[in-house]
């Protein structure tokens, strides 16, 4: 089973080639350049491992939350591959990918506007729904859980930033992949509503 993992939801472009286990991957820091780098980097990995894109069995993609434009990049690629070659499609949360299979983690991603996307994961399993919190709420939440590791943008709560080997983490989360039944229906989870944009009109 040849599976390709893709994530462009935040500042990295993460791509993983997975077969029985982890085969190869890349984690490139290219915030706002993911659209340009996505296909060349993927192609490089595929060629290096002698994989043909028409022969893959599935794609696992992050569904958000994260940068709006970023989340849409990998998702567009994933939907087009799955719908044009008819392979399987799976999703994981981008916060879940950040947490990987860490014993117990609070995954944090800067959502700008003094807010953060936050998820809590135990060995890859969601302890609560991903959500968006103000930085004050986040700090209170982290302080109330002193034994839980903070991964991602730790600096938002005065801790270190922690970004693990995200391509590999796709593999560690295998049991958590959600299969997409209707590829056309799949869309990102932004956690912020459309109606927010009414004010801009």
């Amino acid at each position: 089973m040849k599976i390709v993992g893709m994530d462009t939801s935040y500042q990295y472009l993460n791509i993983a080639l997975l077969d029985e286990g982890y085969v190869d991957g890349c984690m490139v820091s290219c915030f706002k350049q993911q659209s340009e780098w996505m296909i060349p980097k993927w192609k490089e990995l595929m060629d290096r491992n002698g994989w043909n894109p028409k022969e893959i069995d599935g794609i696992v993609v992050t569904q958000g939350p994260g940068s709006y434009t970023g989340v849409r990049i990998a998702m567009t690629v994933a939907k087009m591959v799955a719908s044009s070659i008819g392979c399987k499609l799976y999703t994981v949360s981008s916060l879940q990918l950040l947490a990987g299979n860490c014993d117990h983690a609070i995954a944090v991603m800067d959502a700008r506007g003094k807010r953060a996307y936050v998820g809590e994961y135990k060995n890859g399993k969601a302890m609560k729904e991903d959500c968006i919190l103000t930085l004050e709420e986040l700090l209170a939440y982290v302080n109330a859980n002193p034994d839980v590791t903070v991964v991602g943008d730790g600096h938002l709560v005065g801790k270190e930033d922690v970004f693990g080997n995200m391509p590999k983490q796709f593999d560690l989360l295998r049991s958590e992949w959600k299969e997409v039944t209707d590829i056309d229906d799949l869309c990102p989870k932004y956690l912020k509503d459309n109606d927010e944009y009414l004010v801009n009109v």
Partner: peptide, 15 residues
């Protein structure tokens, strides 16, 4: 534009 361009690049590479 990003969505269409990304879709086109994907199809061009895969096929």
């Amino acid at each position: 534009l990003h969505v269409g361009v990304q879709a086109a690049k994907t199809l061009a590479y895969v096929h």
